[in-house]
């Protein structure tokens, strides 16, 4: 590793790594939701395919979690706004 990358290549690699890190964060969230929603939605025994209910539960589980997170942020924001500064 004697010769170093030129500046353009270094910049390209930095961008690449940042993108991969962003993708990894997204993947980590997907892993977390999968486990959480599996626990919530797949309560019976597993069969060769998901039932309609199980599948829509998984979809709703993700969307409602994100709604929850937005809701809480909004609420806290309102409370902070109501405080006399």
């Amino acid at each position: 590793m004697a010769d170093k990358f030129d500046e353009a290549t270094q910049r390209e690699l930095t961008n690449f790594l940042e993108q991969e890190q962003a993708k990894s964060r997204l993947q980590a969230s997907v892993h977390k939701f999968t486990e959480q929603c599996w626990n919530k939605c797949i309560t019976g025994s597993v069969s060769t395919r998901f039932s309609r209910g199980e599948e829509s539960c998984l979809v709703n589980c993700v969307d409602r979690f994100l709604d929850t997170s937005l809701f809480i942020v909004k609420k806290l924001d309102e409370q902070r706004g109501a405080l006399p500064s």
Partner: peptide, 16 residues
């Protein structure tokens, strides 16, 4: 099924 669930969650999250 777990892997299928991962794919469903992934699709839903990315769409959102």
């Amino acid at each position: 099924r777990y892997m299928e669930a991962f794919n469903i969650v992934s699709r839903t999250y990315i769409a959102r």
